[in-house]
Amino acid sequence: MSAAIPEYRPPLFSAQRVWTLATSTFTQLVRMKTFYFLAVFAVLVIAASNLNLLYTPVQQLKVIRETSLGAMSIFSWLFAISATAVLIPRDLEDRTLYTILSKPVPRLEYLVGKLLGVLLVIGVALALMYAFFSLILFFQEYSIISSEMSRMSQNPRYSLEDRATEAALISAYGPDLNLLYGVLAVFLKSAVLATVAMLISTFASSSLFTIIITTVIFLIGHFHKMAADFWVAEQQGALITRILGKVLVLVIPDFQIFNISDSISGGQSVAFLVIAQMSALALMYVIIFTIASWFLFSDKEF
């Protein structure tokens, strides 16, 4: 019985274990009543669709798109930072980490599993929000077009062509694939943000520290282009600030790049290639920061 076992060579990286950790994290976050936010979101979207500030038909749809994507962004940033910052320290404090790492779980798997769990919650929440607001948008589009058409048809000035053009203009702001891309961009940005939070939490002394530092990095990441233009291109300022600026630009991700949902809610369309490239960029960030986290976490003692 005992002779057979030493020959057993279990896999060094197991997707099944990662998935177990991810789903457990998912359950944990869901049972922490995270999804109550969805109710707030629903109220917001409905409020936005009833907001009438002398809006044109197109603006009425736009304000729903803008409010929804904006609320989705805020939710996913807050969630990415706070959930990631809290989860690992909490496992450590509760000593749950001892029981997990004393199973045959490599530390990389633990990190990836936790991160995946957080991303799973963000992903599912975004998908639900997207479904809800697309539905609202669909009904609004329908009712706005029909009321607009009936009004225009009573006015002989408008030709059939005018009406068709107006209908097409309005429906350009209905639910469409571009919005899905916008939501995906929101997700990608939070994924990078969560990975940064994970890296910080592998050496931070408290969750609060992680939250503050990650937020600061997040803000600096938005000044990236400005900082790059100012510090890297220009040869002015003290040597130390120039060096510091260069280091920051190289180390901190450019979060501004993911901000396309603003333009999308305003009606810009996105090519698939752009989204594919953005996903590749986000994936690259996630991999780099996960490797860095693993570096620090693998040496940690509990």
Binding site: E66, G70, S73, W77, F223, Q256, S265
Partner: peptide, 10 residues
Amino acid sequence: LGGLRSLVSI
């Protein structure tokens, strides 16, 4: 800057 231009403008 954070990508909430739309919300600010609403």
